[in-house]
Structures are given as structure tokens and as C-alpha cells.
Nucleic acid binder design. Structure first.
Length: 915
RNA sequence: GGGCGGAUAGUUCAGCGGUAGAACACCUGCUUUACACGCAGGGGGUCGUAGGUUCGAACCCUGCUUCGCCCACCA
């Protein structure tokens, strides 16, 4: 005889706080999250998307992590050796900004401190706040192997970064050059294309006339003959630039002093004759040529473009093609420089206003127009991004991207949901080189040393002491650091010890799954794929699950300024981590944003209590002895719950395997609350009370034991804490539920047809309850008896006869009689209802309101007649009978005959009531 | 300009070929010995719009309206 140590003293209400903390530390102590290399077992691995060290856990992380934790816990229970590798990202620009902001409060800038001291301060900051987000992850219940926690700037990862940089450089896939890049004047660094966010803005279009000059000689600028005149004079020759002027439209008059050419389209009717001629740049004395270039859209603006290679990406390319000078007039902080003449020292905005004013007074500004155009902003600080000419490092991405595309095309990487594949292909197939240098101090310093003597650049994994070319000792390391995403791109293998050949790499790489949001597909996912293929010669992960965004209850993006941020930690305080996890899991639907509100979390908080109390009920009715289930002594409801339990076990596993945790979570919720609590628990009461004898009581206990023994592990990945606590209370075994194995569906507990039979019973119970409510019978009043009228030989009659005890208990009646409809009605005034082939009658004596009941019956008859008529109409269509599947037609026939019988019965009732 | 997704009960969403479901909200009634973090019952929807395919469409196809997102361009 098996016995168990049960704990029957559970509190009446579930309180998560102490329980969650207790179990988390026990799991840690027992080393249950530790990943072991076990050749006997299959490996399952996930590397966590490393959050910023300075960050705080937001609800997006919470969702992401819940998903990963569900997968990891499930796989552990399925017998895999699971690695969930945690860590944080140094987040170069973001972290540097945070620390700079803190310093600014003390009136210090990073330049005051100098590079070395500043970086030291950032490390101090990291030491103080870096563990915060890690602790928050632990509160959520993340089952990461914390022994393996990594940081993108730690020693091992830095080694990997260097190795990758050097190898790519030697392969010719990293190059350095002077190019136009996106530049944030506030952060004073280059940023990649992806770090620019565009938004539409009001701006002005300035129509400026450039005077045509005969030669390249430095003639003095002629004053415009039109200064001060009416500007809309159609006779003016500058309309279309045909006279002494050429008209150019620009949004950036402050860059005019950096102009080096005017470009027109080669086939432009209007301007062709001017190609090769020259103009004088307004506000300067420079003479520049009019050139032709395909880049010009003759339909846009005036059809001619001023070319400023140092301050516009398109102009930059035109400049290269035509071998034009690059004149920089704006410096790295967004201030006009020494080439800007009288505008030197002004901000861009000031210079724009001033130059426009000056152009106007020279009579060269023909008009200004309001336009909306999209303007790029720095993702980190919102400052308007400047195209800026500077020396930068780039990764040549095309060859890497080609392999990345191939890996998805031949199925080595699977995207879930599949739709994201398209987005990925679209980006990868049109990929541009990646600017990886940043003029920051916090990050991986580029391992390149420039020789002050010969200018040669030495790129090396180990700090060199001399120039590899001329052996001069006079070398200096590049001051730039790498884009933070460079190190992130290596995360799946750098965290496992690459470039060394470690056992972790051979066992856990490629990882099984990557879970992340669509916002970093390009930043991160695509680059991990490229780097993984290049350096591991294998994909970094088999499946990519892209989850949707979490928004507030009205579908708005959460943001601090809107004040609609849901803080997962506050939610955990308030409702418990389990409730939050269950909510996030249950709300998740593939390919759709998730709208979250605290009332939703409350719903799942209630679910925790429901599960808790259902367990309390079971425990109150179980003694320490484990009872066997006697399959020959089961009632319908026992078979029903056993069957449903097996179904749910099977279905949940399938759903989790296909990453549909939303449906899985909702299925478990419905099973526990609906099937188990609303029906089984209620129906098991008579047997547990002993009303059906000792054998029935024992078997019912066995069933309860089995159901909880099965459903708690199914729930565990979703709500680990409460299930662990209950597992212990039931005393199912001495071990942790976390270490239990995933329940298999057991065929001996699956019974054919019981779900349908049960629904017959449920319908009858609902009908009876309905009648009670209708007759306003007080719930506490036990009725003497109800009558169920059903043909004696039908299946329904059999089902009901076997479950009379349960029907009585659920409907609070003393006795239920089963009669044949042919029997004479002899119970006095009654209410009746139908469900299927079963007529339910409730003798209600004096309580019955006769006129009201007559009205109700008439209404019901009308409804049924309508339904019968519509079914009949379908049956009358030969096409329907011929082409619809036989079972559908049969169902329709059934509806008609049943409906008609029902109408007959109701009419009989009506007659007897009318008397 | 290219692409993607949504439009179903008051709200947020499931359903994705056989004539509508859940949660929350609302109404009625309940100290029913697991749970008021609960129980029972109820009201509420011509499934955005117009066509088409089909015996049959919320579901498939095509237009339209509308909301949101991504990419590219913007002198």
C-alpha cells in the first residue's frame, strides 16, 4: 500500500509572496536550473536575448522570458538536457547615455573625466545596477543556469569579438573608409541605418536662384536685377532657370556654402543646354559647374539639385561619380565650422534661418514653401540625425547575407510565424554595408593600430607592440568602439566559449530556439544568423519565434510619457509571478499584438486561487493512502474527467511543441475551471461523502489523485510556483515537480463516447437549473423532486439513470424520477424544458406563475417553429440534399423531427396550463 | 512607392466552410460545509462594406472603406 505525506492545512486563500520566494531559492540550491552535458539525453538550448545592463525588466521582457521559461521547463520534463543561458548586454550608446546623464546632474561631462576615468565610472555603474535586471528575472521564475551568466563585455566575449573582427578583416569583409554616415550630433557618434528613426516633419522648401556666370573666372556676384520686385512676375527669366539664373529648391540652405555642383537630369528638356555651364554659389564667391546625373528626378522640385557631397548621402555618391570636392561646413557637434564663413559657430537651425534671411536680402530667395518631409532621428536621444562625412569601419554584408538567406530557404532555420520570413528575406536581399564603428568610449575598442610613421594599420587579436609593416613602435590604437550589436551578433556561440572548442559548443550549439520581438529582427536576429554561419559554419538556432508587441488595454504602445506602462514587478507584487505568467501566456496569439491590463492579470490571479481551492478540496477528501482506480466501478463523470485529463495532457504537449502557448494555457484554464471544478468536483461530492459506498469513495479518491497528479505537471511550466507548492502538499513524491516527467496520456483512462454522454447530462442539469431560476425557486430550497421524461429504452435514459445522484446534487432536488413521455402527467403544475430527446419537468406547485408561463411557452413554440421552418427550407432544396455530406443532411432532418416533437409537447403543456 | 497585419457582444479577443464563443463589464438571485479571488441564471452580435465561389461563407476569392505596423524615397 502506497502512502503519501499530505499537507491538509493549506490557507483558505492562496498568497503568492512567500511561496514564490521560497521555491525559487530551493530550486537554486538544488541546482535544478543547471545545464549538464549529458550524452544520454537530447540537448535543448536557448540563449536569452540579453537585456541592457542598465535596464529594468519591462513587460516585453516578462513576456519573452515567460515564453522561454515555459519551453525550458517543458523540455526538462520531457527528458531533455536543457540549457537556458542568461546574460546582459553592455548596450554601448544606451549605457553611455545613462551614465552621462547621471554625471550631468553633478555638472560633469564625460570630457571632463577623460576616457579612462569615464569608462571606469561606467563599470562602477554596472557593478551597482547590473544585477538589478537579473534579480528581476529571478522574481519572474526564470529557470536560467545562472552559473553561466555572461556579459557582452566580459573577458571571454571580448576575446570572441576580437577574433571575429580580425578574421573578417583578414578576409576583406571589414574595411575602413571615409563615407557619409548617419551621425548623431548630440551623441557625437556614427550610428547605423537601423538606429535612425524617421518621422514626418514640417519643413520649408527654399527656392534659391544661383546666378549663371560665363566663365570660371571669379567675377563679382551680380546683384539680382529683381531684388525687391514683385516675386511672382511671370516674365522673370529665372522661372525655370532659363535666364541669368538657375533655380534650385532645397530644404537645407545652410549647406549651400558647401555646394560643389548643380545637377540636372541628362535628358531634361529644360536644362540640357545648361550642362557644362557654371553658376556662382550664393553667399560665397565659388564658381561651380552644372553637371548631369541620373539621380535627379526632373519632376521633383525645380528639376535641378544642388550637390553637397559632405552633407547628403545621395550627393555624396554623385560627388564620387563626378570626382567632386567634399566641403564640410558642419562639424561633429552640429555646429557650423570654419568653412561656413560668417555662419561659423552657429547651430544648424540658426544657420538655416540666417542664410535664408541673407538670401532674401540678396534677392536670391524666390519663395519658400511649407512641406512635410521625413526626418531621421537618433533612436537613443531623438536628436535630428545629420549625414556626416567621416572615417568609419564597415562590414561588407553581402556575402554573409547570401548564406543567411540560403539557410532559411533550405529550412535549416524555421521562422514562427512564417510570415516573418518574408520580412527577413526582403532585408537580407537588399542589405547594405554595416557601419560598425562608434565614436563612443563604452564598448569593445576596435583592435586596429595605426602606425604614426608609415600609416599602416595593424589589426590583431593580441595587442601589438609595433607596426607589422615597418616595425615602428610609434603606433596608436583606433579610438572608436564597435556597435553594440556586433558583440550581440556573436551571442549564441561567444557565450559558450568560442573561439575555443568547448564541450558546450559541441553539445548545445546550434541552439534550439530563439525567442524575440520583431523589432530586432534586423538589428540582431539576421546578424546572428550571418555570424553563426560564418564562424560556426552552422545556424545559430533551429527555430526563431517572433512574438508580438505588448500594448496597453487600448492598444497603445506603452511609454513613460503616456503613463500607461505596466511594470511587471508591480504586477508580481500585486498578483504574483504565476498570475502574470499565466496572463501573458494565455493572451498570446501568434501574429497579433497583446493588449494587457491589470484587470486581465486579476482574472488569472483568481485562477490561481481556484486551483488552490480545488486542491484544498481534493486534499480534504484524500487520506494518506493512495487508492487505486477501479475501472469497473466508474461513473460517467469519472470516465469523463479521466478522459478529458488524458486529452488535455496530449493536447497541451502538442500545442507547446508548436509554440502555441496561448491555446495551451487557455485550454488548461478551461479544463481546470470548467471540467474539473464546475463539474467533476461537484459531481464527486456524493461519492466522497460516502453516499455510494466505500468502494465508490475509494475509486473517486483514486480519480481525484490521478487528475491532480496529472494536471499539476501540465500547469507547471506556466505557473511554476503554485504547482510546486501544491505538488508538495499532495505529497506526490519526495522530489520537485520541476523534476517530474511530462504526463503521458494513458489509454486505459480514455473512454469512448463519454464526452458526448456527459454533455447530455450537463444539458439536463442546465435545463433543470434553468427551470428553477425561472420559477424563482430560492437556491437554498431543496425541491422534493424533479421529473425527467425520456423514452425508457433510449441511451439518454440509461445515462441519466446511472447518474441520478449527481443530478440531484447539482440541482438541489431530493429525488429525480425518470418517466416515459407516454406516462400520464400526475404531478400538478410544472415547468418543462427540452434538451435533446430529454424532456425535463419541474413540478413547482404554487410557485408557478401561470400567465407568465403561458407567454413563455408561446414564445418558445414560435422560436422552434422558426428553426424548423428554416431547416425544412434547406431540406427542400434538392441541391442541398444531393451535395452536402450525408451527416449534415441527417443532422438537419433530425432538427426538423425533434423540433416538431418538441412543438407537440409544448402545445400539450400549453393546453393543460390553460385549463 | 513596396510589403504585412487587424476590422466579430459595451470592451479586449477566440473561432477561420455546416448559421456565433470566452474573459471583463452589465442585470437577477445566492453565508449551497474547496473557493464571494466564489456559485447559479440572464440580457447583449444582420461577424466593416460591395460583389464572387459554394447546396451552404464570420471563415475562401476580388474590389472598397478604415485602423495600425515595417521597408524604401523625399533636392
Amino acid at each position: 500500500m502506497t502512502t503519501r505525506k499530505r499537507n491538509r492545512n493549506l490557507d483558505k486563500n492562496y498568497s503568492p509572496d512567500s511561496i514564490e520566494q521560497k521555491w525559487y531559492s530551493r530550486w537554486l540550491e538544488a541546482g535544478l536550473f543547471n545545464a549538464e552535458i549529458n550524452p544520454e539525453a537530447k540537448a535543448f538550448s536557448i540563449v536569452i536575448p540579453p537585456p541592457n545592463v542598465t535596464g529594468s525588466l519591462h513587460v516585453g521582457h516578462a513576456f519573452d522570458h515567460t515564453f522561454q521559461d515555459i519551453m525550458c521547463r517543458t523540455k526538462r520534463m520531457e527528458g531533455y538536457s536543457v540549457l537556458w543561458l542568461p546574460g546582459t548586454d553592455h548596450a554601448g550608446i544606451a549605457t553611455q547615455n545613462v551614465v552621462e546623464k547621471a554625471l550631468a546632474k553633478q555638472g560633469i561631462s564625460r570630457y571632463d573625466l577623460g576616457r579612462e576615468e569615464f569608462v571606469k565610472r561606467v563599470w562602477e555603474w554596472k557593478a551597482e545596477y547590473g544585477s538589478r535586471i537579473i534579480n528581476q528575472m529571478k522574481r519572474l521564475g526564470n529557470s536560467c543556469d545562472w552559473r553561466r551568466e555572461r556579459f557582452t563585455l566580459d573577458e571571454g566575449l571580448s576575446k570572441a569579438v576580437r577574433a571575429v573582427f580580425v578574421r573578417l578583416y583578414n578576409k576583406g569583409l571589414i574595411y575602413r573608409g571615409k563615407y557619409i554616415v548617419n551621425w548623431c550630433p548630440r551623441c557625437a557618434t556614427a550610428i547605423s541605418d537601423l538606429e535612425v528613426e524617421y518621422s514626418d516633419q514640417e519643413g520649408s522648401f527654399y527656392y534659391v536662384q544661383y546666378p549663371l556666370v560665363e566663365t570660371e573666372a571669379n567675377d563679382p556676384t551680380p546683384a539680382s536685377p529683381y531684388a525687391g520686385e514683385e516675386k511672382n512676375d511671370e516674365s522673370r527669366p529665372d522661372k525655370g532657370g532659363l535666364g541669368g539664373y538657375i533655380l534650385v529648391a532645397t530644404t537645407r540652405p545652410e549647406t549651400i556654402i558647401g555646394d560643389v555642383a548643380i545637377a540636372v537630369h541628362p535628358r531634361s528638356e529644360k536644362y540640357r543646354h545648361l550642362i557644362g555651364k557654371h553658376v556662382r554659389v550664393p553667399l560665397t564667391d565659388r564658381i561651380i559647374p552644372i553637371i548631369e546625373d541620373n539621380m535627379v528626378d526632373p519632376e521633383f522640385g525645380t528639376g535641378c539639385v544642388k550637390i553637397t557631397p559632405a552633407h547628403d548621402p545621395n550627393d555624396f555618391l554623385v560627388g564620387l561619380n563626378h570626382n567632386l570636392e567634399q566641403i564640410q561646413v558642419i562639424d561633429s557637434r552640429g555646429i557650423m565650422n570654419e568653412n561656413a564663413g560668417k555662419y561659423q559657430g552657429m547651430t544648424i537651425e540658426q544657420a538655416r534661418k540666417e542664410s535664408a534671411k541673407d538670401l532674401e536680402s540678396l534677392g536670391l530667395l524666390v519663395k519658400t514653401e511649407k512641406i512635410t518631409h521625413s526626418v531621421g532621428h537618433c533612436q537613443r536621444c531623438g536628436t535630428t540625425v545629420e549625414p556626416y562625412l567621416s572615417e568609419q569601419w564597415f562590414v561588407k554584408t553581402k556575402p554573409l547575407a547570401e548564406r543567411g538567406v540560403q539557410a532559411v530557404k533550405d529550412g535549416r532555420i524555421k521562422w514562427v510565424p512564417e510570415q516573418w520570413e518574408k520580412t527577413y528575406f526582403n532585408w537580407m536581399e537588399n542589405i547594405r554595408d554595416w557601419c560598425i564603428s562608434r565614436q563612443l568610449w563604452w564598448g569593445h575598442r576596435i583592435p586596429a593600430w595605426e602606425c604614426k610613421d608609415c600609416g599602416h594599420i595593424t589589426v590583431a587579436e593580441v595587442d601589438p607592440t609595433e607596426c607589422e609593416h615597418c616595425h615602428s613602435k610609434n603606433i596608436e590604437q583606433e579610438s572608436d568602439v564597435l556597435d553594440t550589436w556586433f558583440s550581440s551578433a556573436l551571442w549564441p556561440f561567444s557565450t559558450m566559449g568560442w573561439p575555443d572548442k568547448t564541450p558546450e559548443l559541441s553539445y548545445f550549439y546550434p541552439t534550439s530556439l530563439m525567442v524575440t520581438g520583431f523589432d530586432i529582427i534586423f538589428f540582431w536576429v539576421a546578424r546572428m544568423i550571418m555570424m553563426g554561419l560564418e564562424f560556426m559554419d552552422d545556424v545559430p538556432f533551429r527555430d526563431v519565434y517572433i512574438h508580438s508587441l505588448i500594448r496597453d488595454e487600448h492598444g497603445k504602445k506603452m511609454s513613460k510619457t503616456k503613463g500607461n506602462v505596466i511594470d511587471p514587478l508591480v504586477m508580481i507584487e500585486q498578483y504574483g509571478a504565476d498570475a502574470l505568467r499565466m496572463t501573458l501566456a494565455a493572451l498570446s496569439v501568434q501574429g497579433r499584438d497583446i493588449l494587457l491590463s491589470s484587470t486581465r492579470i486579476e482574472t488569472y490571479r483568481f485562477f490561481m486561487n481556484k486551483l488552490w481551492n480545488a486542491s484544498r478540496f481534493a486534499l480534504m477528501n484524500l487520506d494518506d493512502e493512495v487508492r487505486d482506480i477501479d475501472v469497473n466501478n466508474l461513473h460517467l463523470h469519472d470516465k469523463f474527467i479521466l478522459t478529458r485529463t488524458q486529452e488535455v495532457a496530449k493536447r497541451t504537449r502538442e500545442l507547446i511543441d508548436s509554440y502555441d502557448i496561448g491555446t495551451a494555457a487557455r485550454g488548461l484554464y478551461d479544463f481546470v475551471w470548467g471540467d474539473l471544478c464546475d463539474w467533476y468536483v461537484e459531481m464527486s461530492k456524493p461519492a466522497l461523502r460516502g453516499d455510494e459506498g466505500e468502494a465508490r469513495k475509494a475509486t473517486t479518491q483514486g480519480v481525484l489523485e490521478h487528475v491532480f497528479r496529472t494536471v499539476l505537471p501540465l500547469l507547471h511550466p506556466f505557473i511554476p510556483f503554485v504547482t510546486e507548492e501544491l505538488w508538495e502538499a499532495f505529497g506526490f513524491n519526495e522530489d520537485y515537480i520541476m523534476r517530474s516527467s511530462w504526463p503521458e496520456a494513458r489509454s486505459e483512462y480514455m473512454f469512448e463516447g463519454v464526452i458526448e454522454e456527459m454533455s447530455t447530462l450537463q444539458d439536463v442539469v442546465r435545463s433543470l437549473r434553468n427551470l428553477r431560476a425561472e420559477a424563482h425557486v430560492p437556491p437554498q430550497q431543496k425541491l422534493a423532486h424533479a421529473v425527467i421524461r425520456v423514452a425508457g429504452e433510449s441511451r439518454s435514459a440509461e445515462i441519466l439513470r446511472a447518474s441520478l445522484n449527481q443530478v440531484c446534487s447539482l440541482c438541489r432536488v431530493e429525488d429525480v424520477a425518470i418517466e416515459s413521455p407516454a406516462d400520464e402527467w400526475r404531478h400538478g403544475p410544472s415547468l418543462s424544458g427540452m434538451s435533446g430527446d430529454v424532456e425535463v419537468r419541474l413540478p413547482v406547485g404554487d410557485v408557478l406563475d401561470v400567465p407568465k408561463e403561458i407567454a413563455r411557452l408561446q414564445g418558445e413554440i414560435a422560436n422552434i417553429e422558426k428553426a424548423v421552418a428554416s431547416s425544412q427550407a434547406r431540406l427542400d432544396k434538392p441541391s442541398f440534399v444531393e451535395r452536402a455530406p450525408a451527416e449534415v443532411v441527417e443532422k438537419e432532418r433530425g432538427k426538423v423531427t425533434e423540433g416538431q416533437a418538441q412543438i407537440e409537447r409544448l402545445k400539450g403543456n400549453l393546453e393543460s396550463l390553460s385549463k
